[in-house]
Design a protein around this nucleic acid. Structure first.
Length: 479
RNA sequence: CGGGGUGUAGCGCAGCCUGGCUAGCGCAUCUGCUUUGGGAGCAGAGGGUCGCCGGUUCGAAUCCGGCCACCCCGACCA
């Protein structure tokens, strides 16, 4: 139960986040260092996220499957960059049934290797392609500095793994899934993400091309919300994924992978939340509207509950995820704060005055105080509520977009870039040189986030070294 | 691996220096009554191998030795 105030975001953003996650009962710390327990309310949110994504995956021709958690250690040696990227954060099982294992087993940090191994068995002909498989599961990376949802040792996600006959097809798949993520982020989570290519330094271990969607949190730090990779034939060569093409020539398959994790919950919290707590986008909220009956005595209770029950049934029948809060052991004032902490988009208050007037009081979570309150007739309430949920959804996106745009600046020179990334994002010409990227990181702690797919016309000069530059990139401090 | 710190109720802590009656406080929990349109009040109750093992002592949360866990700083690694 939410029993106390949060620190304000301005006071201490990190602490605001930590306490919000605990008090909204989204997650809790597990007894194993760095691991989290996702509590029922947090998991209900994740279920709504997975449903919205899974629907999109199926619509684009993908099927779900499941692969094992344990992967032979030797698999990681097969792709040089992949092993270098993941070796430091592997958890390894050395014993089983009380015996030392012949070969240690890694707890999967991602499934490219084991899926590559299986694909090499399943793919023999061009007729077997494309393979479009998605996995819902969890992975483990031995993280040292952890934070609930944003970076934990074990986290929940989906990873799509596809194999194709041509580079064109595989690239198309990578872009398609990046678009699926973007569509999900914008239209379901109300996160105005920016899509683009990752620099060579920031690229996934073993990928030829990595794309991402990046969101701006309220502290102006960037959070990668989803990624989609093109591997070329890197994994196909490592795991011998080969097929005979139409001309009876043996070819390596072109593969991709793409993933989105429970980290997106962190993005939702840090994009929309306020000093009262969480604010959930209606389309993903486990509870879209909560009904608070208000009364002083049994006589009032009888009258109020009659209306409240009717309203509840009507909204439920209309497909709205509605909750009746008839707890009598906490005060109404407490309930207000409690549901605000949990981010329920709409509160419906029904008291004796409302019963008399044939109205209810609606309070929008995204507009605090009196301004967000309206008194509407009980008649046709399902329509009123549905309309308001749609309005809240679009208001959240609009507000986040405005915030994002107000905090992205184009630097005039390097000095300007330094002051911009201290408290915002810089959108700047960049020569794509590693040295320039490293210099920015050393001077400011900001890294390149991504290179937008849509680039402006013409050329510029690199904001760091002054040499000719073809691409513009976002620099920002990241989670 | 080195230095420092902390382990006492679900959480946060006091008590330890200077050993002594039934180990205490706040929050949370439970019961009852009054409350309930912006985080209620009063009364009562339950809840503890004082991190673990050993020692000193008539008597140890307290003193001594060893061990374990966690946190901070440094080193290593990037």
């Amino acid at each position: 139960m939410a029993e106390e105030k949060l620190p304000t975001r301005a006071e201490n953003f990190a602490e605001w986040y930590n306490q919000l996650v605990l008090k909204a009962e989204l997650a809790d710390y597990a007894p194993v260092r760095g691991c989290m327990v996702v509590r029922p309310y947090g998991w209900a949110l994740w279920e709504n996220i997975t449903a919205a994504l899974d629907r999109r995956f199926k619509e684009t021709g993908h099927v779900n499957a499941q692969f094992p958690t344990l992967i032979p250690m030797s698999f990681f040696e097969k792709e040089k960059e992949h092993v270098e990227g993941f070796a430091p954060e592997l958890a390894v099982v050395t014993h089983g049934g009380g015996e030392l294992l012949e070969e240690p087993l890694a707890v999967r940090p991602t499934s490219e290797t084991i899926i590559g191994h299986m694909y090499s068995r399943w793919i023999k002909s061009w007729r077997d392609l494309p393979v479009l498989i998605n996995v819902w599961g969890s992975v483990m990376r031995w993280e040292l500095r952890t934070k609930l949802f944003l970076r934990t040792a074990e986290f929940y996600w989906q990873e799509g793994h596809t194999a194709h006959a041509s580079k064109e097809e595989a690239m198309e798949e990578m872009y398609r899934m990046l678009d699926v993520y973007t569509d999900f982020a914008v239209n379901e989570a109300a996160l105005p993400v920016l899509k683009g290519y990752k620099s060579e330094t920031e690229r996934f271990a073993g990928a030829q091309v990595t794309t991402s969607i990046e969101g701006m949190m309220q502290d102006k730090r960037a959070l990668q919300c989803g990624t989609s990779h093109y591997f070329g034939t890197n994994f196909a060569k490592a795991f011998e994924i080969q097929f005979l093409d139409k001309n009876n020539v043996l070819q390596f398959a072109e593969t991709t992978s793409w993933g989105l994790s429970t980290r997106i919950i962190g993005a939702i919290i840090m994009t929309h939340g306020d000093d009262q707590g969480l604010i959930l986008p209606p389309r993903l909220a486990p509870i879209q509207a909560v009904i608070l009956p208000i009364f002083k005595n049994d006589a009032e209770k009888a009258k109020v509950m009659e209306v409240a029950d009717r309203v509840f049934a009507e909204l439920k029948a209309a497909g709205i995820r509605v909750k009746m809060d008839d707890r009598d052991n906490v005060s109404t004032g407490f309930k207000f704060n409690d549901w605000e902490m949990r981010g329920v988009p709409l509160r419906i208050e029904i008291g004796p005055k409302d019963v008399e007037k044939g109205s209810v009081a609606l309070a929008r979570r995204d507009v605090p105080g009196r301004d967000g309150k309206s008194f509407v007739p009980q008649t046709d309430l399902a329509r009123t509520v549905s309309g308001m949920l749609v309005e809240i959804q679009s208001a959240l996106l609009k507000r986040a977009t405005k915030f994002r745009d107000a905090n992205i600046h184009e630097p005039k020179d390097y000095e300007d870039l330094k002051s911009i990334v201290a408290d915002g994002w810089a959108y700047a010409w960049w020569c794509e040189g590693k040295e320039c990227e490293a210099k920015v990181k050393e001077d400011t702690k900001a890294t390149t986030r991504n290179i937008p797919l849509d680039q402006p016309e013409g050329h510029g000069t690199c904001v760091v070294c002054g040499k000719p530059a073809k691409k513009k990139v976002y620099f920002a401090k990241a989670y």
